[in-house]
Write a protein that binds this DNA or RNA. Structure first.
Lengths: 346, 346
DNA sequence: TACAAAAATGTAAACCTTTACATTAAGTAT
DNA sequence: ATACTTAATGTAAAGGTTTACATTTTTGTA
C-alpha cells in the first residue's frame, strides 16, 4: 500500500501540517526539520496523492486538448506545440480525438470536467458550443478553428479565407484559369472558409467560380488521390489543382504522376497548411503556410493567461494570418497551351 | 460553485448514499426514486467530482502515454492507435513527450503517478528502467521499443533487426553492393537494432560491412537531407541509401533530387516504418512496414489485460514482426554500371 | 530573568465521494 | 395480525491532502 503523508509525518516525528508545508515549499519551516522530512520522503519514496490534492485544491495541472482527428502531420504538430507550452508550465496534456462525432466530443468533455484546469477544443465540423454549456463557467476554454460567433469563449482562428484567396490569386497570376479545388469535409468550417477565399479571388478577377471545379474531399490523402484521378479523367482538365490541405495535395500528386503527367510542367498543384513534409516532397510543395505548432502553443498560452487571471474576464479572439509559401509545384501556365489553342483553332 | 452530491441528495429528498447508488448503477434502488434523482441530476447539471471519486476508488480512468518525441507521422500514428483503443474502454490518454531527456521522463512519470491507471512508455534512447523504480509495483507498465532485458515489465518491441536485414538482403538481391545507411540517434536502441540487421545481412552474404557507409542521423527529415547530401558528394557514391526511418528517407530524396539524380534509376533509396505518407510520395517508397498505429493499440490492450487481472502476474513480451514493403524507390542495379566499370578498366 | 513578539509547529475541518453496516419500509407466509 | 424475510434507504467512516486558526517554542529586549 502506498505511503501517505501521515506515514511520513510519523516517521519524521512531526505533524502532517509540517510535512505538507515542506511539500509545498511555501511556509517557513525550520531548516533542520525540513531536511529531516525531506530525507524521510526520499527514503519512503513518498509522493503526494494527486486526487487528494486535487480534491482540496481544485487544481489538476492538466489541460484537455480535444482534436477532431489524429491522422496526418497537422494534428501531431498541434499536439507538439501544445505539449511544449504545457510542459513549460509544469502542466500536462490530456489528448482526445473526437472523430468529428458529437457523442465523442460530449464523452471527452464529460471526462475532462474536473480532470483538467482548462480545455482547448478544435472542432471545425461539429458545432460544439451546445456541448460546452454544461461545463462550469469558470473553466477556461479556447476554441481552435471552430465555427462560432460566440464571444464568450476565447477563440483562435486561422485566416483560411485570406490564405485561399491569396493562393488563388497567385494561380491566376500564373495564368491559370481552370483551377480545380479539392475541399475538406462537408460542413467543415475550415474548408468552407477556404472555399470562400477561392471564390472571392475568382470573383474579384471577374471570373465566375465554376462549381464543377469544386470537388469535395475530406482532408485525407486518399480522398485527394481519388478526386485528382477523377479530375484528370476529364477531357480538358484543369491546369491547376488547389487542394485545401497538404495531405490531399500529396494524394493528388500521386494520382497526377500515375497519369503520366509532370508537375509543375503539365499541371500545377498546391496545398494548404504547410505541414513539415511539404517542403521535402518533390517537387517541393507550394502551399499556404499555417503556423501549425504555434497554434497549439498559442492556445495553451492563452489558457494560462486566463488561469493566472491576467485577463480573467476578457475573452480574446485571435485571427491567425497565413502566408503564401511558394515552392516548386506550381508554374506559370505553359504558353504552349496558347499555341495549342491556336493550332486547334486552325 | 459546483454542486455536489449533497445538493442533489437534498433536492431529491434522499441521502447521498442513494444518489451515489444511482450514479454507479450498481445497487438496486426503487425505480421511482431513481428517476427522481436522475431528473434532479439533469436539472442541476451535476457531475461527480473525479478527484473525490479517484481518492476513494483509486482509479483514474486515464492511461499515460510517454513518447520520446512528437515530430513526424510515426508518433502521431502511435497516439492514434492508442487513443482508439483507450476510447473503446471509456478511458482517456495523458500524452507527454520526453525529448529523450531523463529529467523530462522523470517529471512526466512523477506527474502520472496517481493520475493514471497504467503507463505506456516508449523510450528507445534513454534507459528508463531506473526511473520506473519509484513507481508503485501495482501500476501496469508497458515498455514500447525500449532497450531492456528486464522481464518484470510487459514489453513490445519491433523486429528492427529482422526488418533491416530483410531490406538489406533485398538491396543485395537487386545487385547493390555499396549500400549506405542513415542511422537514428546515438544510443537509440531502435537504430542499433536496425544497424545490427544491416550488418548481419552484409556479413551473411560475405561482404564486410564498411563503417564508412554508416552515417548517423537522428530520425528527422533534415538529418536525412543533410546526410544524403554528404553521401552524394563522394566521388563513387553508393548505389543505394537505406535510411532507418521514412522521415530521413524523405529528406534524403530531396537531397538526391537536388543533386539532379533520378530515383530509382540513378540511385535507390528506402526507408523504415512505412508511415502513411510513404506510399504517396513519388516515387512511392520502398520501406519496411511496421504496424505503427497497432503498436499503440497493442500496448493499450495489453495494459487493459493487466488491469482486468486476466494476466495479473505474468508479463508478456511481444515481438512485432515487420514486413518488406516493395514499392518504386529501389531498382535492380543498372547493368550500365558494369559496362562503365569495364570501360574504366580498359 | 522575564516578557513580548516572532517563528515554528500542531489540530482539526474541509474537499466529495463510496460503501460497510445499520436501520427502516415493504412484502409474505402463517 | 404477527413474525419473518427481503428490499430500500440512511449513517458514518474512510480516503489523503491543504490551511485557518490555535498552540508551543524560540528569539530578542528590557
Amino acid at each position: 500500500m502506498r505511503s501517505s503523508i501521515v506515514d511520513v509525518a510519523e516517521k519524521a516525528g512531526v505533524s502532517i501540517a509540517t510535512v505538507s508545508r515542506v511539500l509545498n515549499g511555501s511556509d517557513k519551516v525550520k531548516a533542520k526539520t525540513r531536511e529531516r522530512i525531506l530525507s524521510v520522503i526520499q527514503e519512503m519514496k513518498y509522493a503526494p496523492n494527486p486526487a487528494a490534492r486535487g480534491l482540496i485544491m481544485k487544481k489538476t495541472e492538466a489541460i484537455g486538448l480535444l482534436l477532431p482527428d489524429l491522422h496526418g502531420e497537422f494534428f501531431s504538430e498541434v499536439i507538439r506545440g501544445a505539449d511544449e507550452a504545457v510542459q513549460k508550465h509544469g502542466y500536462h496534456l490530456i489528448v482526445s480525438s473526437s472523430h468529428n462525432d458529437p457523442n465523442e466530443i460530449e464523452a471527452a468533455l464529460r471526462f475532462m470536467r474536473g480532470r483538467v484546469d482548462a480545455i482547448v477544443l478544435m472542432s471545425p465540423q461539429v458545432n460544439a458550443e451546445i456541448l460546452l454549456e454544461n461545463l462550469p463557467k469558470s473553466l477556461p476554454i479556447v476554441l481552435l478553428n471552430c465555427r462560432t460567433d460566440n464571444t464568450h469563449y476565447d477563440t483562435i482562428v486561422i485566416d483560411g479565407f485570406g490564405g485561399a484567396r491569396e493562393m488563388t490569386n497567385y494561380l491566376l497570376d500564373l495564368g491559370h484559369r481552370k483551377i480545380a479545388v479539392i475541399t475538406g469535409g462537408e460542413n467543415n468550417s475550415e474548408s468552407e472558409e477556404r472555399l470562400r477565399g477561392y471564390r472571392a479571388a475568382m470573383t474579384d478577377r471577374h471570373f465566375t467560380p465554376n462549381h464543377s471545379m469544386e470537388h469535395q474531399g475530406n482532408f485525407t490523402e486518399i480522398s485527394g488521390y481519388e478526386i485528382a484521378r477523377e479530375i484528370l479523367r476529364q477531357k480538358h482538365h484543369p491546369t491547376a489543382i488547389f487542394a485545401f490541405n497538404d495531405s490531399m495535395a500529396i494524394g493528388a500528386i500521386k494520382a497526377i504522376r500515375e497519369e503520366g503527367l509532370r508537375i509543375p510542367s503539365d499541371i500545377s498543384i498546391c496545398g494548404f497548411d504547410d505541414i513539415p513534409v511539404a517542403k521535402y516532397i518533390s517537387p517541393s510543395m507550394t502551399t499556404v503556410h499555417v503556423p501549425i505548432s504555434e497554434l497549439g502553443t498559442m492556445a495553451i498560452n492563452r489558457v494560462f493567461d486566463r488561469m493566472t487571471k491576467h485577463s480573467k474576464d476578457t475573452t480574446a479572439h485571435v485571427f491567425v494570418p497565413t502566408k503564401l509559401c511558394l515552392r516548386s509545384s506550381c508554374k506559370k501556365i505553359n504558353t504552349m497551351s496558347n499555341q495549342e489553342k491556336e493550332e486547334i483553332a486552325v
